[in-house]
């Protein structure tokens, strides 16, 4: 069932934001994340013949990306042991290096919080992917990248009222897409 076609020239525009959000949540470093995505695209290109068309392009790219992330951690793990981390008290009075006494304070962000945020990013880009391409791009520019209305109007050659109609449609679609889990 080879229904899904593959088109590498559109990958960057269509998937880089989604993949980037996925990666940044897992490696926590912009540059590493970008390298990983770039590598993913290149690897995808090389193994394009193996794409059977059973999954969507995005699922397929994500599965490559997952391996790249694992590889990244393997590499950084093999460097382990070269640097030693010592846990010491900051003041001189107390002695010893008890790990238990250095647990994070409970008012800090909890793991649940950050997991939620990770999933939120994925949900947003997932919903964005379902919008028509132009709508998605305009909405993203306006809402996430904070472009001026005028700048966007110029770039897409549309009138402001046209622009607001597009924004309105995008917002309605996004809200109903995310409503179940997030709003």
């Amino acid at each position: 069932m080879a229904t899904n076609q593959i088109d590498p020239t559109k990958w960057v525009d269509q998937y880089s934001d989604y993949l980037f959000n996925y990666t940044i949540a897992r490696v926590n470093d912009r540059e590493v994340a970008q390298d990983l995505i770039s590598e993913t695209f290149l690897a995808g290109l090389k193994s394009m013949k193996n794409f059977k068309g059973e999954a969507t392009e995005r699922t397929w790219l994500i599965s490559i990306l997952k391996r790249k992330i694992i590889d990244h951690y393997r590499k950084s793990n093999s460097k382990k042991g070269k640097a030693e981390v010592r846990i010491n008290y900051k003041d001189e009075e107390s002695e010893g290096d008890w790990l238990e006494e250095r647990v994070a304070d409970p008012f800090d962000k909890t793991a649940e919080d950050s997991i939620q945020n990770v999933e939120l990013g994925e949900a947003i880009f997932n919903c964005l992917g379902k919008l028509p391409e132009k709508q998605a791009r305009i909405f993203k520019m306006k809402t996430i990248d904070d472009f001026d209305t005028e700048a966007i109007c110029n770039e897409f050659d549309i009138t402001p009222s046209n622009f607001w109609v597009i924004i309105h449609r995008a917002r309605t679609a996004m809200a109903s897409c995310m409503e179940k889990d997030w709003l």
């Binding site: 934001d17 980037f20 959000n21 990013g121 997030w182």
Partner: peptide, 17 residues
Amino acid sequence: RNSKLTKAVNNPTVQTV
């Protein structure tokens, strides 16, 4: 709904390339 969406999208963990 609209303001909730704004709040969600403005979350600092949502990043783009």
